[in-house]
Amino acid sequence: MTKKQIFINSAFTENSIWKQVLGICSSLAVTNLLLNSLVMGLGVIFAIGLASFTISLIRDYTPRSVRMMVQILIIAAYVIIVDIFLKAYYPAISKSLGPYVGLIITNCILMGRAEAFASKNPPIDSFIDGLGAGLGYTLVLLLIAFVRELMGQGTLFGMRVLGDWWVNWSIMVMAPSAFFLLAMLIWIINTKFYQKKQ
């Protein structure tokens, strides 16, 4: 596979959220605001890209029996960098994301890519694969956050978009809407793109 194919494959065709339903643990909670989702997505892209790179770099020297532990520690190291960076430069966002930045560590996407790709492929390919997976993840987050913020508060990135005539849907601010939106997204994508191949 060429580098471009790897990227497209991991970002769209094999997208972790809609194809394998991985990594939604920490993703849905931040989708009430677009800004939060964007920051979270960027954090995941950074962590997954570099973690995949590092894991792949030392893949030949890691004993199989402890490889899960090694992978988690590498991921945790990068997540701590993201966390400290946010705390230092964007304290307000860091506060509103709460524990969810730390929870990137246990996000199944990172472990999933590490196991499925980075532990078998060379570093540069793994890095690209990680970036793709992170980007696909961010895209889904932004899609859901777009609907939730627009309909729940009438704003986009905190700016008023809909006029005074708009009545906020309070359900969109609450948790169940994220489940419904993700279910609908998966439904639409499955029917549109995957059914034809069968």
């Binding site: 339903v21 609450m174 948790a175 169940p176 809407s177 994220a178 489940f179 419904f180 993700l182 279910a183 998966i186 439904w187 639409i188 994508i189 499955n190 029917t191 995957y194 059914q195």
Partner: peptide, 23 residues
């Protein structure tokens, strides 16, 4: 269950309704 909704999609919908009930 509609084909596109089978598996994860349906589980998420059920979870959504459950979350609504828990509110």
């Amino acid at each position: 269950i509609p084909t596109g909704l089978q598996g994860a999609g349906m589980s998420l919908l059920i979870t959504g309704i459950m979350a609504l009930a828990f509110i």
